[in-house]
C-alpha cells in the first residue's frame, strides 16, 4: 500500500508540473492550451537530440532543452494563438488549434525520431532504496524534490513578484487589468514562457523516468486537464492538488484493475468531475466556458 502511495506521489508530481503550466495559461488566457503536451515532448526530444545524438553533456543540455521548450511555447502563442485571438476566435477554436499543433508536433517527432521508446543513458540506473516500506529510486526522489521545488518557486513567483502579480491580475479581470495599463499580450507571452519552461523540465524528468515516445503529449494533456478540473479551473494550486490526486488514483486503480486500464482511470475521473463537480473539489471557478 505504501508502494502504491509512493508511486502515486511520483506520478502526481509529474502531472502536477505539467498541470501547473497548463493551468497558468488557462487562468490568464482563458482557453485550453492543448498543445502544452507537445511542449513537454519537444523539450524531452530536444534533450535527446542534444545529448544522445549530438553527444553533448547531459545537464547543460537539459538546461538548453528547457529554454527550447519555453521558446516553443512562446512561438505557439505568437504564431497561432495570438493571431486567432485577434480575430476573436472562441476558446473552442483555440482548443482545436492547439490540438492540431499537438498532432503536428507529434507527427514531426515520429518522422524525425521514430516510434520506438527512447531513453537517456546519462544516469546510471540505480537500485531502489527502501523508505518506510516502499521501494523508491534516487531518481524518483529527485523528481519529487525538483517538482516540489519548482512548484513552490512558481507559487512564490505568483505571489511575490511583480510579474506574477500582473499575471494574477490579468487572470482575475482582464478588462480591468488593461484599463490599469497592463500589457495583456506581453503578460500572455510571459505566462507561456513560464509554463512552457516548466513543461520542459517535466519533459526531462519524464524522459529520465519513463523514456520518450512521440505520443507522450496527448496523454499528459488529458491528465493535466483532469487535475485542473478536479482542483478547480482557474486555480494553479488547485491544479497541483488535483494532479496529485490523479496520480494517486491512477496507482490505486492499477492495484485493482488490469494495469492497462491505468490510463483510463484519469479519463473516468475527468468524466465524473465534469458531470458532478465541474467546479472542482475546492469549488473554485474563475471563468468557465459554459
Amino acid at each position: 500500500m505504501i508502494q502504491v502511495l509512493a508511486n502515486g506521489i511520483i506520478a502526481g508530481a509529474i502531472y502536477a508540473l505539467v498541470a501547473s503550466g497548463f493551468s497558468l495559461v488557462y487562468s490568464t488566457a482563458r482557453f485550453v492550451h492543448f498543445a502544452h503536451g507537445a511542449t513537454v515532448a519537444a523539450g524531452a526530444y530536444f534533450l535527446y537530440f542534444l545529448s544522445m545524438q549530438l553527444g553533448a553533456s547531459f545537464w547543460p543540455s537539459a538546461v538548453v532543452a528547457v529554454a527550447f521548450a519555453a521558446a516553443v511555447g512562446i512561438a505557439m502563442n505568437a504564431f497561432v494563438y495570438k493571431p486567432l485571438r485577434c480575430r476573436n476566435a472562441s476558446s473552442l477554436v483555440l482548443l482545436m488549434a492547439g490540438f492540431a499543433m499537438l498532432v503536428l508536433v507529434e507527427a514531426a517527432l515520429l518522422i524525425a525520431f521514430g516510434a520506438d521508446i527512447k531513453t537517456f543513458n546519462a544516469i546510471r540506473v540505480e537500485k531502489g532504496m527502501e523508505i518506510a516500506g516502499a521501494v523508491i529510486t534516487p531518481l524518483q526522489v529527485s523528481i519529487i524534490a525538483t517538482a516540489a521545488a519548482l512548484l513552490l518557486g512558481l507559487h512564490l513567483f505568483m505571489k511575490r513578484t511583480r510579474l506574477g502579480k500582473t499575471m494574477r491580475a490579468v487572470a482575475c479581470n482582464k478588462t480591468l487589468a488593461e484599463a490599469r495599463g497592463i500589457d495583456v499580450e506581453k503578460t500572455h507571452t510571459y505566462a507561456f514562457a513560464v509554463s512552457s519552461a516548466i513543461a520542459g523540465v517535466a519533459g526531462v524528468l519524464i524522459g529520465l523516468e519513463q523514456g520518450l515516445e512521440p505520443t507522450m503529449g496527448a496523454n499528459l494533456v488529458i491528465k493535466s486537464f483532469t487535475g485542473t478540473v478536479i482542483g478547480g479551473i482557474g486555480s494553479v494550486p488547485g491544479a497541483v492538488l488535483g494532479s496529485l490526486l490523479v496520480g494517486m488514483a491512477e496507482n490505486v486503480g492499477a492495484w485493482f484493475l488490469p494495469s492497462g486500464y491505468k490510463d483510463a482511470v484519469a479519463f473516468v475521473l475527468l468524466f465524473a468531475f465534469l458531470l458532478f463537480k465541474p467546479d472542482g473539489l475546492l469549488g473554485i471557478n474563475r471563468g468557465v466556458n459554459k
Partner: peptide, 14 residues
C-alpha cells in the same frame, strides 16, 4: 464548449 470537447475526448481514450 471546451468541457464537452474534452469530456468526449476522454470518452475516446476510455
Amino acid at each position: 464548449g471546451d468541457y464537452l470537447a474534452l469530456a468526449t475526448l476522454g470518452f475516446f481514450f476510455v
